[in-house]
Design a protein around this nucleic acid. Sequence first.
DNA 1: AGCAGTACGTTACTTGCGGTAACACCAGTC
DNA 2: GACTGGTGTTACCGCAAGTAACGTACTGCT
Lengths: 215, 215
Amino acid sequence: MDIAHRTTDQQKPAEQRRRELLEAADRVVLRDGPKASMNAIAAEAGITKPILYRHFGDKGGLYRALATRHTDALLASLRAALDAPADRRRRVESTLDTYLASIEAMPQVYRFLMHPAEESHQSEQGFDVGRHSAPLLRRMGEELGQVIAERVDLGPAAEAQARIWGHGIVGMMHAAGDWWLGERPCSRAELVRSLADLLWGRLAEAEDRPGGPGF
Amino acid sequence: MDIAHRTTDQQKPAEQRRRELLEAADRVVLRDGPKASMNAIAAEAGITKPILYRHFGDKGGLYRALATRHTDALLASLRAALDAPADRRRRVESTLDTYLASIEAMPQVYRFLMHPAEESHQSEQGFDVGRHSAPLLRRMGEELGQVIAERVDLGPAAEAQARIWGHGIVGMMHAAGDWWLGERPCSRAELVRSLADLLWGRLAEAEDRPGGPGF
DNA sequence: AGCAGTACGTTACTTGCGGTAACACCAGTC
DNA sequence: GACTGGTGTTACCGCAAGTAACGTACTGCT
């Protein structure tokens, strides 16, 4: 009588299957980069293409599902560092370090998250710049902005200010981390310290260099 | 008789040809986004694919040539703002505003520059994270770092610090700009002011919010 | 039992793009 | 006239995304 009463036989496999597929996709993507083919992923999962399409719609869907998993994981660890009971400078440094440690530990994951390899949504004729550059950055920016708004007293227009700062700080962290990961010009601790110093206004405090260029 | 005297209808200096092709490519890319096909570009230029390949090698080559043009232009205008004779805060605000005005004026160009749409170099098995995320960011970061090192007195370890700050600030500008361009949550002037405030240490100065969350 | 529905799975196909080979035309040069 | 080097072309290959059509097993319903 109960239509929706799928006994354990079929319901579990549905969601569990999806997990298996995602894990297989994960392996392939982490091995071959964002240009892993659907065929390769299907082969790794021991099945064929159409099944992937039934589960995820299109390649973008699969990648989005994959990205969401990793993004959630990273955001969770960042939240932990961000919410720790310590003074602000400590929290900032801890969060920076957590992020950098993550991308250092799994550069392939990081690379994948930051490069969705063109979702190609083609939404209309317009060129909505947004959402193309990795949703991970946006999510981190929004969350950080929220935390700032909650915990820091910014006077009037606090909300707008906090969001701007959230996205700005996340961008700073991201770009510096990306560059650092590529060139390794210094230790992680030094990088963390320098970035925190930057946020602490040391650029504004520093003196002009004596004998500037042509001036 | 004269070698340089070609009949007007054909046989142009070949470098000018390249320019024409680049301009055609520009039009198409700015219209169709980074996924513009070589066929489309060739059609826009009034010729066919193989010619493009003779000139630029592969799609990556064409896109690199295109990106270089725009990147050079943007960097030039940023340098102007950065080198203006004014106090530091003024220069910072002016540079931020110049950048934001540029991406606001030509979001398609901006989008293209930040999303080379996977060059797919496939260099070996490794995953060199670098250089995938738009060389524009790297170049801006390096230049800014250099300017900081030249004009600001940072004491010991100045060089490393300056480069870190350069990339960090550029990343801040980029991420905030990207987000702002997508959501338009405030005016450009407000954004500039907030970001400059952030760099001026206002995050560090601000008081804790009274009655924090659950604590 | 027999029938529909549905999720799982396959093979085989279409479409479109990056890239290339082979060929054709047109100048000036020996 | 034959040779060379630039312009251009058409026609093709390989490969990946995405789809259609078909087959199969298990379910509950009558």
